[in-house]
Design a protein around this nucleic acid. Structure first.
Lengths: 215, 215
DNA sequence: TAAATTTGCGAGCTATGACTCGCATTGTCT
DNA sequence: AGACAATGCGAGTCATAGCTCGCAAATTTA
């Protein structure tokens, strides 16, 4: 299977045509992954699906892992973008309202391409390049942490780092489970889910008996 | 690679000698998985490590997937056992105290063989037989659900099913993250972690302002 | 002890997939 | 137009991994 351990990014597409090829390859990778699963997703099949030759594939990606990693990266960027936007629109709201919107955004993010997201979670081995998938979740940590810092006065938890980590882990896990494993995603279900998670998080961050007055 | 799709369990070991062989194979699988990772864990290598021939391996396991599935199953049983015991010892305690013990048990369960557990989570593809891994987590759901039912009077959440699901998912995710990703597992860290998660869960299940008196 | 059965062995077959390489096509620059 | 570079092609190489099969050794049964 793997002959050696190539590692360099090889060529970076410079002209329009080649950029289109790269796009086509990433799209095809996504399609083949969701339709066939990870180990049926051979580089040959991906190239064929993209309407491109294997040779071209290896002109832009040094190996299969790099190809998948690029796709994961693109997908993560898309999800992060939603979070970033949500954080902007929420910056001035009180904690409870803000958290509700952020949880909503988390659900949206997981709905971007849930089938693909499922494959990443269930079948793509997290190693080598792919180990950095989680590292990109570190970006999420920083964003959320910055927001919580700004809302420090509404939060009674001592250690903001671990609180952030806990919130991010919780929302990720619950949202993932909700989107992936709950068969029907009726709007009602969804709203109840968001409410429940919001209550959970807010109750954790602001455990005092009465809600403090808001600005 | 896979020639056809064998599926039957083949032979079940009946004599002592063969049972020892099966044990050796499972142990070897665990060792090779943790030492080499999933895709370096070929059946040949596993058999060699077990001091057994490949042929013998295929006498008891129809394919590689079944072998790994058996190991996962064994590992899950061990973890579940800890949970079951904890639930017994905790049945009569008040919610907060009980939850603390249960979280502790969750950490213990993840420490049974954390390296192996990590491989399962990060590298073993969840498909086919292995998809049932999660199904076995359904056992956890039932156990916890039964406990919460019994403590219903201390819980103010309406829907016990979704509450159980949320608690199980949360504790699993947080514990996993704690055991796998936190470099130092000092006792102090651990106790703080348990306290924090306990507060989170209890606050969620019993969100009223003051704690109710205990029996 | 002889026959029958269970268990163990491991060289080798076969399939398949990652990746290469020499050549063809398309595009760019002067 | 001619030359040089960038991009694309895909049959074929190589390595490896899953799995089989005929035979040997050990146990059990008669």
């Amino acid at each position: 299977m793997a002959r050696s351990v190539p590692t360099t990014p090889r060529k970076s597409a410079s002209q329009k045509r080649s950029q289109a090829t790269v796009e086509a390859l990433l799209d095809a990778t996504a399609r083949v992954l969701t339709r066939e699963g990870y180990d049926r997703a051979s580089t040959n099949r991906i190239a064929a699906t993209a309407g491109v030759s294997v040779g071209s594939l290896y002109q832009y990606f040094p190996n299969k892992e790099a190809l998948v990693a690029a796709l994961v990266s693109r997908h993560n960027r898309e999800m992060l973008e939603l979070l970033r936007n949500a954080l902007k629109e929420v910056a001035s709201l009180d904690l409870a309202t803000a958290i509700r919107e952020l949880v909503r955004a988390a659900v949206d993010a997981h709905l971007v391409d849930s089938a693909l997201h499922r494959i990443f979670a269930e079948q793509v081995p997290r190693m080598g390049q792919l180990a950095k998938i989680e590292a990109l979740q570190g970006e999420t940590f920083l964003l959320v942490r910055a927001y919580l810092e700004q809302r420090r006065h509404e939060i009674s938890v001592r250690d903001l780092d671990s609180a952030t980590s806990i919130c991010v882990t919780i929302v990720e896990a619950l949202t993932h489970d909700f989107v992936i494993n709950k068969p029907v995603t009726l709007k009602g279900d969804r709203d109840r889910f968001v409410d429940e998670v919001t209550r959970l998080i807010v109750g954790y961050l602001r455990p005092s008996r009465a809600a403090k007055p808001l600005t």
